[in-house]
């Protein structure tokens, strides 16, 4: 076995999903989306989540981001259970959701704008410290400008998202996610809508960035190869109600590269996952 991470198993996980259950009561009756889901994501780890449609992947993300509260169980971020955890992790939806009336630069600093304006601390500071807020704003924009080339967006800072290609829009959305400054990133099928080549390029680019930025990533995908290629571990969810069917460690060396897809080891991982998902 190749050790891909040298972490202390006793360390507090960045993100702990602890016995989370969620049932929706709609007109069509009760729908059990998640049943007793538990897993941890450790510091600087990439955990991919895969499961058939209807396995509650999106519900899981809505619970983690704090958009909905689960009926049972808890979400702990760095060991703490927060009363309001919205904004505590950075969420990147499948659609880029760049605001069309904001330039690329204004889009990517949005999370910091919201943290600055909406945070309780900023409110306590009040209007007297407005210049400080202005300075923080300028610093955020400066930091975003510095990161633009790394995200392949150099020269497009002041363009509207409408002129960007699909891959560029996705990179801009990812930069927005990174700009939040949060340690844990939730990526919800970010490459799902892209063509196969762009997608592979962005996978490699994401892995490279991950090494530089040292963030922790939880990545939803419906693509088995993507789950293996990106992940340190793959969490497999069962069909409705979603449960953790199995957690598979990925014993492939890092850094990963696309040629590995031809390796027998890679194929074995994919085969195991397909079997778990009931595809033979």
């Amino acid at each position: 076995m190749t050790a891909t991470t040298t972490r202390d198993p006793e360390a507090t996980p960045r993100l702990a999903v602890d016995r989370v259950s969620m049932t929706f009561h709609g007109e069509a009756g009760a729908v059990e989306a998640l049943a007793d889901v538990s897993f941890d994501v450790h510091r600087e780890e990439i955990v991919t989540v895969i499961g058939p449609s209807g396995s509650g992947k999106s519900t899981l993300f809505n619970v983690i981001t704090g958009l909905i509260e689960p009926q049972a169980g808890a979400i702990r971020i760095d060991g703490r259970e927060l009363a309001d955890r919205t904004g505590a992790v950075a969420y990147m939806p499948q659609r880029d959701l760049l605001l069309p009336w904001r330039t690329v630069l204004d889009n990517v600093v949005l999370p910091l704008e919201i943290q600055g304006a909406g945070g309780t601390r900023a409110r306590a500071r009040g209007r007297a410290k407005a210049p400080a807020r202005e300075r923080a704003r300028e610093q955020a924009r400066e930091r975003a400008r510095e990161l633009m080339p790394r995200f392949g967006l150099e020269g497009f800072e002041n363009h509207y998202p409408a002129v960007l290609s699909g891959g560029m829009r996705q990179r801009a959305a990812f930069l927005r996610t990174v700009m939040s400054g949060r340690e844990t990133l939730l990526l919800d099928e970010p490459f799902g809508a892209l063509d196969a080549l762009t997608r592979r390029r962005l996978q490699d680019w994401l892995l490279e960035l991950q090494r530089e930025l040292e963030r922790t990533i939880l990545f939803i995908t419906h693509d088995v190869e993507e789950a293996v290629y990106l992940g340190d571990r793959v969490v497999v969810l069962s069909p409705r109600p979603g449960r953790v069917q199995t957690t598979m460690p990925v014993d492939l060396p890092r850094p990963r590269h696309q040629q590995m897809i031809g390796d027998p080891a890679f194929g074995r991982h994919v085969a195991t996952l397909l079997e778990e998902l009931g595809v033979r």
Binding site: N62, T65, G66, L67, D84, T86, G87, A88, Y91, P93, R95, L97, L99, L110, P111, I114, Q115, G118, G119, S180
Partner: peptide, 13 residues
């Protein structure tokens, strides 16, 4: 688009 609202809520807006 409600997805924009969800995104902003997830940012703590």
């Amino acid at each position: 688009d409600p997805d924009y609202i969800r995104l902003l809520r997830s940012m703590g807006a």
